[in-house]
Nucleic acid binder design. Structure first.
Lengths: 216, 216, 216, 216
DNA sequence: AATGAATGAGAGTTCATTCAT
DNA sequence: GATGAATGAACTCTCATTCAT
């Protein structure tokens, strides 16, 4: 057990604060979380939190930013630098990575999807922007991949599904992943992979079907 | 337009309060909403709100209860007492009613789905219970109807999807409806019906596919 | 069981209100008692209470006045119109009556002695005045009787103990009675009479002793 | 005269708060006292009071605890470590110390005896417990000393007055001390010592008389 | 760099009191 | 005469935020 470290370099302390904040914000409402409790969990004091992150809103925003970045990187890695045994369908790999992230990083996802969504909040501005970057990433995934982008073997798919369809699919993918993550808590015997498969098919079928009849 | 009425009977005022509260809670976080602002919107004063509903939590709970009831009734009516031109697939009618409700009663739905979801809050207790009643209703819809319940013309559907599948489908339906409602705000040209169609198929396909190969 | 009477004559309703108020004020602090609860206990509504007694303070004052009057009358009756078997020492009869009243009318006494004593309260003015009337009555009892007033057989007692002593004795009598009343709740086997005897002796001895050596 | 100090260490501020609170609670009813006024009197702000003492009730309880402790210590010191010129009757010394305390620390005593007595109040719980410790201390004083405990020169006093008697005496002593403190305000020429003498005799006489005829 | 001390501002809640029927 | 309806005013308590060391 490490004893409480004092005088850590700023970079490290900041990360500890954000760690603590993600946990806290995932457990309760933005307003329910007290800055002090985060400071304590991070092994520091309130003023230090303010010194580093500026305000409660800044703290929250930092969480959203960092976690969004992690999620985006996870998807990109799965698409562009897949491990050897990951299959050769990048759309599927991407969606699977997304499902896996949501499932395995519940706190992170909760903050990203559930907390940052509250409109009319002071923090909404920046948070919403970050949130949209995540959506854009997934839209991009769907668009690029369904179009056969990195996937050489699907030439008939070459049409670009229009942005509208892609956006809708992205949203459905996200909402499904969210529902599924909850579901998994009660049914740990299920695997995210199966669900990811369903959604991949749904996406490909929907994006193809609508325009070309039989995309599969 | 009636001028602001003073001295209304309790029943009426209570409804006005709940009306105002639903609007307020749909716009902001539970904690962001000030009771006084609700009182004013309802044409009354804070003490009267407390006199009638007991507490902020009581007010919130009253909203959740009333709106949940309305949603459930809308679905039941669509399933059991459909208008003449409503098609003869009860599952589809139910899901359609659900999508329509979510789309047309955004405030109501927001309170029901987004606000009541914050776990670990004092107000969550009753709200969560009510929320589960709504889920149960939809599970019921999926289960009964997919099984061919009121739908005489689909004998091949007779398998009863097990509770697990039905629950997952219900959650996905709900989550998707929520996402779709947002979507509709940006794309008013889309109709809830089309979306309901998609989801109905998704449900039927999922419930069938997994266990019976090609149910459709 | 009488059904709740409506339309009672004012005099009666007022008494019911005061009854309820005495009970309520004896149970809790002045500020803890809610006017509404008194109204309900009296079988009426709040506005009626205000109509009759004017204000919470008025209600409280009415209680103090009525109960003080009752206590004073009880003492006077014991001194001046004693029952046949009551002994022929008027001082003792008076103190005994006082002890009995305090013991048997705990609510009344609590309001009179414990509640009306809080200084700095809005109601203090009138309540204190009434309270002082009670003290004066007891001082009077001690003074008159110890002086051999109505008691023919104690000529050596003729000196008038000065007001100061009498007042002190009165206060001691009162505080002792108060302590004793509490005591009796836990020890119902004791009788007020014995205690009254002690205090009577104490009074007589003190008032005599100090000035004349052997008053008894 | 020190100017109003800002930034005092917690321990000090807490004492100042309790000082101010004792004064405030002695002047008015628990409910009449506003926390803010205490904070101001203590040279701080409301939130600091809450930060340190937790709640109004906590503040009140802290007062009761501290003052009770002081009173008890005063009595113990008088009994066990008397100054040279204090006489050699420990019962008398104890009672005298008690009377002196009540007389000289009117605020403290008022809080202890008058405010903590309101039953059925939320704040009464702990306060009542502390109050009983004070009573127990006095009972102990009466019991031990009357039995001739530390008093070597009174062998005929050896009977142990039973707990019942001791308790009654303690209550009367307390109640009388309270009345006497009021009395002293109007008659500053009297001394607590004289009064203590009276009560000591009353106690010894009562404890002896009843059971043994003429104990003195 | 780090933190104990301190607070302004505001929220929920309660209650005596008054209308208007 | 009696009462449901309504509220002004006040109070406890909380929390993000800032000094001063």
């Amino acid at each position: 057990m490490k004893t409480k470290q004092r005088r850590l370099p700023r970079r490290v302390r900041e990360q500890q604060m954000i760690d603590a904040a993600v946990t806290a914000f995932s457990k309760g409402d933005y307003h329910t979380v007290r800055v002090e409790e985060i400071a304590e969990a991070a092994g520091t004091s309130k003023p230090t939190v303010y010194h580093y992150l500026g305000s409660k809103e800044g703290l929250f925003t930092a969480c959203v930013r960092r976690e969004a970045e992690r999620l985006i990187q996870a998807i990109r890695r799965a698409v562009h630098e897949p491990p050897a045994d990951a299959g050769d369908d990048p759309l599927r790999r991407g969606i699977q990575a997304f499902f896996t992230y949501v499932t395995e990083n519940r706190e992170s996802w909760t903050v990203l999807y559930r907390r940052a969504a509250v409109q009319g909040e002071p923090f909404a501005a920046e948070a919403t922007r970050v949130r949209e970057r995540v959506m854009a990433e997934i839209v991009d995934l769907v668009t690029t991949c369904a179009r056969g982008g990195p996937r050489p073997s699907a030439p008939h798919d070459r049409r670009c599904p229009d942005a509208k369809d892609a956006q809708l699919m992205a949203r459905i993918a996200v909402s499904t992943a969210d529902a599924f993550a909850d579901w998994l808590v009660e049914h740990p015997e299920e695997s995210p992979d199966a669900m990811a498969g369903h959604v991949t098919e749904l996406a490909r079928s929907h994006l193809g079907q609508d325009r070309a009849g039989a995309a599969l």
